[in-house]
Deep mutational scan, measured.
Amino acid sequence: DVEPGKFYKGVVTRIEKYGASINLNEQVRGLLRPRDMISLRLENLNVGDEIIVQAIDVRPEKREIDFKYIP
């Protein structure tokens, strides 16, 4: 289970102007929005990149997770 405040290694699977889709595994994925990137710009991400993200909002009833990137 993903817990708010914990850090996870994820893989960038899609990049859109509203954010990047991050997969932690086949069943768990979430969104990294541009506003939640401290020192990383969306255009510097590539599909397949592995990054460390922090879960900031977990809504299991909607199967949604928001991530934050902290270098």
Rank of each mutant, 00 (worst) to 15 (best):
E16N: 15
E64S: 08
K17Q: 11
V47Q: 02
S39M: 12
R29G: 13
E3Y: 12
I22H: 02
P34W: 12
K68M: 13
V53G: 00
I70R: 06
R33L: 05
E26H: 13
I22L: 03
P60H: 10
Q27H: 15
D49N: 03
G10P: 00
L24S: 01
N25Y: 08
Y69K: 02
V11I: 14
G48A: 01
Q54I: 12
I70M: 11
G5C: 13
N46G: 08
E64L: 11
I22Q: 01
D49H: 03
R59E: 04
G30N: 02
D66C: 09
L40G: 06
E50Y: 14
D36E: 05
V2S: 02
L40D: 02
S39P: 15
P71F: 07
Y8I: 01
K68I: 08
L40M: 09
E61S: 11
E43D: 11
R33F: 04
E26P: 14
P34M: 08
K68R: 15
L42N: 02
E61V: 08
F7G: 01
R35W: 07
K9F: 08
P4Y: 08
R41K: 14
I56N: 02
A55N: 00
L42T: 03
K62S: 13
I38H: 12
L45M: 06
I56F: 10
P71H: 08
V12A: 00
D49E: 06
E16W: 15
G10Q: 01
S39T: 10
F67E: 03
Y18N: 11
G10M: 07
P34R: 10
N23V: 14
Q27M: 13
N25F: 09
R29S: 15
L24Q: 01
S39K: 12
V47L: 10
I52D: 02
G5Q: 04
E61A: 11
D66Q: 10
I51T: 00
L31C: 14
K6W: 06
Q27R: 13
V28P: 01
V28Q: 08
R33P: 02
E3R: 13
R41H: 10
L32Y: 02
N23I: 12
D66R: 15
I65H: 04
P34A: 11
I51V: 06
D36H: 12
L40S: 07
D36G: 05
P34Q: 13
R63M: 13
P71M: 10
P34K: 09
K17A: 14
S21W: 15
N25Q: 05
K9S: 06
N44E: 15
R41E: 08
P4I: 15
F67Y: 02
R29I: 13
D66K: 12
D1C: 15
R33D: 03
I51Q: 00
E43K: 10
I56T: 07
S21F: 15
L24C: 07
S39A: 12
D1E: 12
E26K: 12
L42E: 02
V58M: 06
R41Y: 09
R29Y: 12
N44S: 12
P60N: 10
I70H: 08
V47M: 05
V12W: 04
V11S: 03
L31A: 02
Q27A: 12
E3H: 12
K9N: 05
G5M: 07
L31R: 05
S21K: 10
D66E: 09
E43N: 08
D1R: 13
I65P: 03
V53Y: 00
P71V: 07
L24E: 01
I70V: 14
K9L: 12
E3N: 07
F67S: 00
V2W: 07
P34V: 11
N44V: 07
K17P: 15
V58D: 03
Y8W: 02
T13V: 11
I22D: 01
P71T: 07
N23P: 01
D66L: 15
Y18V: 10
I52Q: 03
G10H: 00
G30W: 05
D66Y: 15
P4F: 09
R29E: 11
V2C: 07
A55C: 14
D57S: 15
I15P: 00
E3C: 11
I51G: 01
G19F: 11
R41W: 09
P60I: 10
K6A: 07
I65M: 05
E64R: 10
E26G: 13
Y69I: 04
V58I: 11
A20N: 01
Y69D: 03
R59L: 05
K17S: 14
P60M: 10
K62D: 10
V12T: 01
I70T: 10
F67D: 02
R63D: 12
R59M: 04
V11K: 09
M37L: 06
N44Y: 10
D1L: 14
K6P: 01
I15L: 07
V47S: 01
E3T: 13
Q54R: 06
K6C: 14
V58K: 04
Y18G: 09
K17C: 13
G19T: 06
N23C: 15
P71Y: 07
N46S: 14
E50S: 12
G19I: 05
I52L: 10
G5L: 07
K68L: 09
I52K: 03
I38F: 09
K17G: 09
N23K: 15
K62T: 13
D66I: 14
D1S: 14
D49I: 06
E50C: 15
V2L: 09
E3W: 09
P4T: 12
I70K: 05
R14G: 09
Y69P: 03
I70Y: 11
G10K: 00
K68G: 14
R33K: 08
K62C: 10
N23D: 12
V12D: 00
E50I: 15
L40T: 07
E64C: 11
L31H: 04
E3L: 13
D36Q: 05
I56V: 10
Y69S: 03
G10D: 00
E64Y: 12
G48W: 04
V28R: 04
I51W: 01
V2H: 04
I52V: 12
S21T: 15
Q54D: 00
R63L: 12
D49P: 00
E43L: 07
D36M: 09
I51Y: 01
P71E: 07
L24G: 01
R35S: 11
V58P: 04
K17T: 12
